[in-house]
Design a protein around this nucleic acid. Structure first.
Lengths: 112, 112
DNA sequence: CGGTCCGTTTGATGATTGTCCAACTATCAA
DNA sequence: TTGATAGTTGGACAATCATCAAACGGACCG
């Protein structure tokens, strides 16, 4: 269970975090990660993006410090870096996740 | 006291908000706004950016729904849209502002 | 009116980005 | 070993972005 390279917690910056969260596809990925660990392929289902594009998004999230990725055979396991993020920026991740669900609910009810 | 055009609260999206917050200069502006309303000129002091660049950042913040701008004579008054943002995404703005101050403190103590 | 001040708008430019495709690596299975 | 599967890497391309410079507009002051 090797690990992909991740930035140390001290190197995580708010600006990079915000940039990683500024793309709709990455926000959708983060929303799915909030429900538990996932591997790359199921994470991308329904996003209609090329697998290399998904891989790119995974790297952006990882290098921003939002996710941690472990290699398991030929699949990767991606999970949110809740511990580090909660320590560095308390309440931020929770607020973002809550914003994601409430925004999804708002959009669903606005679908006339 | 005219008002510049702002997006209605319902049109504010998390992705646009995150994008507006993904630039260090804009984060610094937001941090300064947290202490109270400000006009454009003092907001840019020390940022060493051209005034047109600052104007660009003000517009990005405004169009993302982060700030509200009123025209007062030949100056503009910019303030955070706390009410709308707190209603739409509870805790998000507070978490960002807290992250900004704690990150600034961490950087200051890391300045060897 | 003429000048000054605050900020916006309009290019222009170089850098970054999101996306796809094709080729590649590494793992697992037959 | 051969083939299939999971994901990464590099290149290419159009779009977006941050920045500056120069011109503009409106507001205030003589």
């Amino acid at each position: 269970m090797r690990e992909l390279p991740h930035p140390p917690a001290g190197d995580i910056t708010l600006a990079q975090l915000m940039h990683a969260l500024s793309d709709p596809a990455r926000l959708e990925i983060v929303a799915r990660l909030a429900d538990g660990d996932e591997t790359c392929l199921p994470l991308g289902t329904g996003l209609e993006l090329h697998k290399s594009t998904l891989s790119h998004h995974y790297r952006v999230l990882r290098e921003a410090g939002l996710t941690r990725t472990t290699v398991d055979g030929r699949t990767r396991l991606i999970r949110l870096r809740r511990d580090d993020l909660d320590k560095l920026f308390p309440g931020l991740l929770d607020a973002v996740l809550h914003a994601l669900t409430s925004q999804a609910a708002r959009r669903a009810s606005a679908a006339s």
